[in-house]
């Protein structure tokens, strides 16, 4: 236990679970027991990460209530420690964890709202990009488009839920106008995007979601178009392309052709 690697492994175990006797024996007990000293670190870990989750998932917390949220967050942080030091990156698995809780079995929309909040968090903190403009395409030959791979902005996040997650979020969020809430509304498909300093979103139909998801996976424009058409609903490629340019959600062109290279 006097080896530093062993000591740190045991200490991490004490923070996440409970201390081993061998670790307790390494700690000077001068009036405050070793367990009580370790509990200071255990509490700090739990409280600061619960606060981080509460900051990232404020509407989820409102929906389930602060007491249930605290219990769920405590269970999550004990089994899912952060793997990196940036707290705004902590909580990627929280929505899935909520979906696994039997207590929320009759509230299936809650994990959907949590996923939406995670999407906003990703969009807010993602890397900056220079939006492509029409001029970036000026030199392209007409027959080059089919093979283009358009790179979506890092802050362009695709979101889909079987529940009306956006309407629920809007009804509970200070950041949005409270409108009529439709808990029984249909599925929700969104493109979330950070534009300059603010977060925005727009609704997508199934075809445009399939199109953007294919672009996100690195498919060519032709393949993404085909994915949209498989949804068997009207899809206007030129109009979809125009919307991406206008809102600034394209970050680059990856193409095997000589026009390619990366931006």
């Amino acid at each position: 236990m006097h080896n530093l690697l062993e000591l740190q492994t045991a200490f991490a175990g004490a923070v996440l679970r409970a201390p081993e006797p061998a670790l307790l024996r390494t700690i000077v007990d001068d009036g405050i027991a070793a367990e009580a000293r370790l509990a200071i670190y255990r509490n700090h870990y739990r409280i600061t990460l619960e606060e981080a989750l509460a900051a990232t998932f404020p509407v989820t917390r409102q929906l389930v209530g602060s007491a249930f949220f605290a219990t769920a967050a405590e269970r999550f942080v004990s089994v899912t420690p952060p793997t990196a030091p940036c707290l705004f990156e902590y909580g990627a698995g929280f929505a899935a964890f909520l979906a696994s809780l039997p207590e929320l079995a009759s509230y299936r929309f809650v994990p959907g709202v949590a996923r939406l909040e995670w999407g906003f968090n990703l969009a807010y903190h993602s890397a900056d990009h220079r939006p492509l403009a029409a001029a970036d395409f000026a030199a392209l030959a007409a027959d080059a488009y089919a093979g283009l791979r358009l790179r979506l902005a890092p802050s362009a996040i695709l979101f889909a839920s079987r529940h009306p997650a956006l309407a629920i979020w809007q009804a509970h969020s200070e950041a949005a106008d409270v409108g009529a809430m439709r808990m029984d509304g249909g599925p929700c498909r969104l493109l979330l995007l950070r534009q300059d300093e603010a977060l925005g979103w727009r609704e997508l139909d199934a075809a445009e979601l399939a199109f953007l998801a294919a672009l996100r996976r690195g498919r060519t424009l032709e393949q993404a178009h085909a994915a949209a058409l498989r949804c068997e609903m009207p899809f206007d490629l030129t109009a979809a392309f125009g919307r991406l340019l206008a809102e600034g959600s394209l970050a680059g062109i990856d193409s095997p052709a000589e026009t390619g290279g990366s931006q």
Partner: peptide
Amino acid sequence: GAANAYLNDLL
């Protein structure tokens, strides 16, 4: 941190 867990503290 240890063992791929970041413990969010100055230990």
